[in-house]
Write a protein that binds this DNA or RNA. Structure first.
Lengths: 154, 154
DNA sequence: ATATGTGCAAATCCTTTGCACGTGC
DNA sequence: GCACGTGCAAAGGATTTGCACATAT
């Protein structure tokens, strides 16, 4: 999905929820979709302000759930205090696992198509209806293991 | 693994790390292993104080990582602000998935033996060595769906 | 004896919220 | 016009930390 298409989807979602299309929301959207990697709320704020300097931290935090609900962003919680987000250009309900390097904190993602099936299996045994599932793998840089250093940490 | 055996393991771990066996640490251990379900740091504090009223919140927070590192406790992060813990009576590296009900916030666990294999598979593709993996499923109580209420929420 | 551990309270960190003002529809 | 959105700064909640005192080894 192109950034153009995603912006349209964002506007449709806003209309659908009877939310207004504001300059701040558009700036935050644009900043989010300009990111190549995972980003935090604080990083998003900085980038959004570069586009529209009236954007406040509060509005970023208020807009993130809107974009997450509409599946334009995926929220990635690696259990480290702050949450990460990434643009979801695929659109659909792609099942991915996060792999987090405990040395350099870098977040990788890799597809895990069986997760949806497992979510159903697991939940049906417990009389629950599955909503979402997340697989997180912690790992250690081989670069770090060999050299006591990797791209992001030494 | 019995609570007795776990306490010995705890003491061995402390000795191994050259940490001291204090009344507070023992009280926190005992409180943790008396829990049948998942618990939070705050709940653990209350139970530990019932055993030794000199236990402080700070010591609970300082002791939790010690017990987690020694695999006596498993940390369960469901991305809800506070972390949960549970006694790991199995001792080993049991692979379990957490299933969290979004209606009542109850945490279920169910074995997921394939997770270790998947962790390796995923990590080997990224030149990383897997350390641990966690699968979390969000689900919705069927009891809640049917009756707009369940044991813990209505 | 002395290196560790502890309680207390203050500090930190991310995130949320109350309020008065601004603005899309 | 008016309901919704916003910025600001203060509040919030979980966790961490500095410091002086206490204690396990």
């Amino acid at each position: 999905m192109s950034t153009e298409a995603a912006r349209e989807k964002f506007k449709l979602h806003l209309a659908d929820k009877r939310l207004r299309v504001t300059n701040q929301r558009l700036a935050i959207f644009a900043a989010a979709f300009a990111q190549p990697e995972h980003f935090t709320a604080e990083e998003l704020l900085a980038h959004a302000r570069a586009i529209d300097d009236s954007v406040s931290r509060a509005t970023v935090y208020r807009t993130l759930p809107i974009m997450t609900e509409s599946a334009l962003l995926r929220e990635v919680d690696i259990g480290s205090g702050e949450k990460f987000y990434r643009p979801n250009r695929e659109g659909g309900s792609t099942q991915v696992a996060q792999v987090v390097c405990v040395d350099c904190d870098k977040i990788f993602e890799i597809s895990a198509p069986f997760m949806e099936w497992y979510g159903s299996t697991v939940s049906s045994k417990l009389d629950l209806t599955p909503v979402s599932q997340r697989l997180q793998v912690s790992a250690r840089c081989n670069a770090f293991r060999d050299a006591r250093a990797c791209k992001n940490r030494n």
